[in-house]
Nucleic acid binder design. Structure first.
Lengths: 210, 210, 210, 210
DNA sequence: AATGAATGAGTCTTCATTCAT
DNA sequence: GATGAATGAAGACTCATTCAT
């Protein structure tokens, strides 16, 4: 299944939102049908099962960040640090644009072996880690970055921080008195802050010698 | 309910593990009973309901990191940076020692308003953020730290990175060929790596002028 | 919900019978499903819950005797005593035709505040008492009935006696050696006896001066 | 089991109240234990089972009206009508004094064959009906009462009316604006009214020729 | 004698899925 | 293709009773 009609997309979008908020097991097929305004039986009819619906959401959203990274890696003009900055922009942008999807991913990651998406997630992480490793090594070869960079940890900082931020954004908004701000503005604010700080964080870690 | 007998503790520990791995909704009371080796009805008998069981787990585990931070804040001998280092030790230690509990917290955070523990989590975050803010301000007053530190973001780095690491540790272990290592050693390795890198990260962000 | 399909009616009829015989709490949804020959889950599917099923039975059966009384009250030709006689006919007929429903009502009345149908019953009683009061007063104005008639007590005699009779009819039948009679004939016998005696009772109370 | 200690009596009294209000099936053993302030296991311990508890309540309360009637029947001085009046006093008094018990009886009567007390109730009714028949026949022989008295129906009037009154007393009280009256006074009022009207009812039916 | 702990059977309800049309 | 109806399985929870002490 590769092309989806309107109803199918509606179902996936509503399901994505509900899975993100209430978890996969905590969301009933009836919830999704109601939310999407479709007949209950449609979901099994279109996707086969609740689990396959989730798989389709992954396929639908999951064209990953990999491609952009591959292109960027081959760029001969940018410095490695510029590439890192751009990578941060891309990651944050992607996660913030697809918060629901990313929340599902976080839930699935926590679930160790149980989730149905274990394999896909493993693949995604492996690939991304490999590309970032290449980027870091390139910078090290060019003398831009210091030695002894821990790539998996850098990924954890990048993704963990961003993920934590979108998870706790409602607390953050409350605690910092930003309830009156429109959501759009708040999201822009968050993104700016995240990219800015992550970049300076990465710069410090990648370049400053202690 | 403040003191728990052996069986109650066994139930809570198994429930904690299952809730962490499969989510609250994804875990059936029967799962818990089977895992803990107790009769199904015992759980309602001891805790009233599945939800109240979760609340008890929070109460059981939730004596939070706050106290330790409060004591440390009043220490007159340590430098602020030393305090930050110690705070990182405490946080990482705590999260790694109570991985299951922390995974449940992560899930609940993602769930925005739906979860039954929303209030407690909010309280915890607020309190911790406030204490860390005091710590940072102290360092700024003493001239140890630079201006313009974003406290919520520092928390996100600390907690998000650690959380992401424990969530994806099985991937990490696989990708880095550490399957033969005992779990104990692997955990120690993880903790060391996390504290080391987070400390240098924080030092960079808090002290280096750009 | 206003129109019921065959299955829904079957469920309500069997439930009515079981609730009458064994009480609401004493009847399990499984009992009803078995008796009605439907799948257990159908009952929640159609009615939402056991309690709502009861409410639907009340709605289904509860078009009360009120309307008939209202029409009769406005009749200008009948004497008041004739109206009282007709009222007795209607009440006894109704109660005997809907014995199961009426038994549920009796149970619910006993339950003071606990039952789910408390409100509806209160309404029914109030309305009926008011109409009968009007009928009595009319007779008193016309000089047909004596003064000092206690309306609530007259209702208690009418409904209490009839109710007691249908409750104890199996004893009555046994004690009076009517087991061989067909049920149909026995019911007719009961109705005749009840109406006859209640009418003479009412006549005595309403008209004879002591 | 014939003599009950304090705790046993407390259990039976609270159980009686709860069975009356919520029905046998609707009352849990835990409810009773809580209400009576005794340990849950005490009830099985003392009475064997919930059902046997009900049987004990019947035994405890059920020394019936029979004896009084038998004595009265042999009285050579009272007229038969005086005896009927006294019988009405006794019945109403008994039912009103033991409303909870009588409510349980009503519920059990409705239940046809299902209730555990079916036999006892049958016995009680048979005996009482027989004695009243003797009383009526005595009056007829003496020429005090007219012929063709329907004894079961007279019993239905007596017991049904009284039962209906105690069942609907809360409605009655409300509808007639007697909420401010103390319950004691209200009960006295009800009893007076019931005996007065039932006596005149019986007098009319037993003596007036049409 | 008395009770906290324990339990198997049963409660009502919801679930994801399938069927008949 | 689309859907209202239907269902077996599983959900959380409560029940009356018994057990070990």
């Amino acid at each position: 299944m590769m092309e989806y009609n309107e109803k199918q997309v509606a179902i996936m979008e509503k399901a994505e939102k509900l899975f993100a908020e209430k978890g996969f097991a905590g969301t009933s097929v009836r919830d999704i049908a109601d939310e999407a305004g479709v007949n209950l039986a449609m979901i099994s009819y279109y996707f086969g099962s609740k689990e396959k619906l989730l798989e389709n959401i992954f396929r639908f959203r999951g064209e990953n960040i990999t491609l952009q990274l591959e292109t960027m890696l081959q760029n001969k003009i940018m410095t490695s640090l510029e590439k890192v900055d751009q990578m941060i922009d891309r990651y944050v942008e992607r996660i913030m644009d697809q918060q629901s999807f990313y929340k599902i991913m976080m839930r699935e990651q926590i679930a160790k072996n149980y989730g149905p998406m274990h394999k896909q997630i493993r693949q995604l992480i492996t690939k991304n880690q490999e590309l970032i490793r290449q980027l870091i090594e390139e910078g090290q070869k060019k003398g831009e970055f210091k030695k002894n960079i821990d790539v998996p940890l850098m990924m954890a900082v990048l993704i963990g921080t961003t993920g934590h931020m979108i998870s706790t954004q409602h607390f953050y908004r409350e605690l910092n008195g930003m309830q009156s701000m429109t959501n759009e503005k708040f999201q822009a604010h968050l993104r700016k802050k995240l990219t800015y700080h992550l970049k300076s964080l990465f710069k410090a870690v990648l370049t400053y010698e202690e």
